[in-house]
Amino acid sequence: NEEPLPEGWEIRYTREGVRYFVDHNTRTTTFKDPRNGKS
Rank of each mutant, 00 (worst) to 15 (best):
N1K: 13
N1P: 13
N1W: 13
N1Q: 13
N1E: 14
N1G: 13
N1A: 13
N1S: 13
N1Y: 13
N1V: 14
E2S: 10
E2D: 11
E2M: 10
E2A: 11
E2H: 10
E2P: 10
E3G: 13
E3I: 12
E3L: 12
E3S: 11
E3Q: 11
E3V: 11
E3K: 11
E3C: 15
E3W: 09
E3D: 12
P4G: 10
P4S: 09
P4Q: 10
P4I: 08
P4V: 07
P4L: 08
P4F: 07
P4T: 08
P4M: 09
P4Y: 07
L5T: 03
L5Y: 03
L5N: 02
L5D: 01
P6I: 04
P6D: 04
P6N: 03
P6V: 03
E7L: 12
E7S: 13
E7V: 12
E7K: 13
E7G: 09
E7Q: 13
E7R: 13
G8K: 04
G8W: 04
G8Y: 05
G8R: 05
G8P: 03
G8N: 08
W9N: 00
W9M: 02
W9D: 00
W9K: 00
E10H: 07
E10L: 06
E10D: 07
E10S: 10
E10M: 06
E10W: 04
I11T: 07
I11E: 08
I11L: 11
I11G: 03
I11A: 07
I11D: 02
I11S: 07
I11R: 06
R12F: 09
R12H: 07
R12C: 13
R12E: 04
R12K: 12
R12Y: 07
Y13R: 06
Y13G: 01
Y13F: 11
Y13E: 05
Y13V: 07
Y13M: 07
Y13P: 00
T14R: 02
T14Y: 03
T14C: 08
T14M: 04
T14K: 02
T14L: 04
T14V: 03
R15V: 11
R15G: 09
R15S: 12
R15A: 12
R15D: 09
R15Y: 11
R15F: 11
R15N: 10
R15Q: 10
R15L: 12
E16H: 14
E16D: 13
E16L: 14
E16K: 15
G17P: 00
G17W: 05
G17T: 02
G17R: 07
G17S: 04
G17H: 07
G17E: 03
G17K: 06
V18E: 08
V18W: 11
V18K: 12
V18Y: 12
V18L: 12
V18T: 10
V18G: 06
R19V: 10
R19A: 10
R19Q: 10
R19G: 04
Y20L: 06
Y20V: 07
Y20Q: 03
Y20E: 03
Y20W: 04
Y20F: 11
Y20I: 07
Y20T: 02
F21N: 00
F21Q: 00
F21R: 00
V22K: 05
V22H: 07
V22A: 05
V22E: 05
V22R: 06
D23P: 01
D23F: 05
D23R: 03
D23W: 03
H24E: 05
H24M: 08
H24V: 08
H24G: 07
H24C: 08
H24R: 09
H24A: 07
H24P: 05
H24Y: 09
N25Q: 08
N25R: 08
N25A: 08
T26M: 06
T26W: 03
T26E: 05
T26V: 03
T26Q: 06
R27L: 09
R27C: 15
R27N: 15
R27E: 12
R27P: 05
T28G: 05
T28C: 15
T28R: 11
T28L: 09
T28V: 08
T29W: 15
T29E: 12
T29P: 06
T29H: 13
T29L: 14
T29K: 15
T29V: 15
T29Q: 12
T30Q: 08
T30R: 04
T30P: 01
T30V: 04
T30H: 11
F31V: 07
F31M: 12
F31I: 08
F31P: 05
F31W: 10
F31Y: 11
K32Q: 14
K32W: 13
K32H: 14
K32G: 06
K32N: 13
K32E: 15
K32P: 02
K32R: 12
D33W: 02
D33E: 02
D33M: 01
D33N: 02
D33K: 02
D33F: 02
D33Y: 02
D33T: 00
P34A: 00
P34R: 00
P34L: 01
P34W: 01
R35Y: 03
R35M: 02
R35T: 04
R35G: 02
N36A: 12
N36G: 13
N36K: 10
N36W: 11
N36M: 11
N36H: 11
N36C: 15
N36T: 15
G37W: 10
G37F: 11
G37A: 10
G37E: 12
G37R: 08
K38L: 15
K38P: 15
K38T: 14
K38H: 14
K38Y: 14
K38D: 15
S39N: 14
S39R: 10
S39T: 14
S39G: 14
S39A: 14
